[in-house]
Design a protein around this nucleic acid. Sequence first.
DNA 1: TATTGTTATACTCTATAACTATA
DNA 2: TATAGTTATAGAGTATAACAATA
Lengths: 153, 153
Amino acid sequence: MRPRTPAAAVEKVDTAFLETLLGYNARRAALAVIEEFLPAMAPYGLRPVEFSVLSLITHNPGITSRQLCSTLGILPPNLVGMVGALEKRELIVRKPHPRDGRAFGLHLAPAGQKLMRDAEQTAATLEANVASRLTPVELRTLIRLLKKVYQRD
Amino acid sequence: MRPRTPAAAVEKVDTAFLETLLGYNARRAALAVIEEFLPAMAPYGLRPVEFSVLSLITHNPGITSRQLCSTLGILPPNLVGMVGALEKRELIVRKPHPRDGRAFGLHLAPAGQKLMRDAEQTAATLEANVASRLTPVELRTLIRLLKKVYQRD
DNA sequence: TATTGTTATACTCTATAACTATA
DNA sequence: TATAGTTATAGAGTATAACAATA
């Protein structure tokens, strides 16, 4: 047996094991994309979750808070302040729900419509930039496989 | 033009646009995997980041806090408490760095070695379960593409 | 009885500024 | 002058319990 060098320094960090784990890689990739998303959405005053909420309202006018929560995995108490703030900024309006007196239907206000036209365009452009590290086929494959991971059947 | 139904209810939420965005899909997939990771690591008293830290120390004995931070994207002030707690649990030990008097080399203590043998085995098994939603080829492809996204060149 | 929206609150995670000791 | 580790602290994100109004 060769005597071990005591307390040797690490020159290059070996991440081989962590890189075999899907969770590690998915989290690092998500953080890398969000890191670019943050400054791109800052001019609109939107953080990622706020963008997601407004995007769902855009494509689902009349959606309720409850539906937003279950779709995005947000807890109801944590959505209250966000919806309130978006309403205060006059980006959305709350209308009575047609069939459920407890709920409100959320709709884009005119300012919100204008904002989201630009913001979704910016998001799509950003997507193209991030995707430039991949071929179009690779990006489609990546998104398809990610969906298989999180879409429970 | 057909008159719009005012304030109609949303029956099924349309997530088509968000699902075109890599960041949205990567975040959802990462959360889905971590959701399974949490209870699997709970018996070891490890949260995801603590597992990552211990795994890096396992495969890089003598690694410094600074190297852990830059590898995992953690800020130094947020690592101090974690390293202190792991040391207090006698999972790791800090030894003087051989060449840098400011730094410490982090090493697994005997209890940490035993814990990580089991924990990394559990992580690998969990990986196989999550991966059962994908074929082996799909999993390899997915991890390769995720690395392309977050590994800056 | 169950659900929607809400308040209050606590806990975790992440971020910034400033200090010390060593390089 | 720059860097490793640290302290204190602030902010963002996420969690549970409990309530009023409505289903």
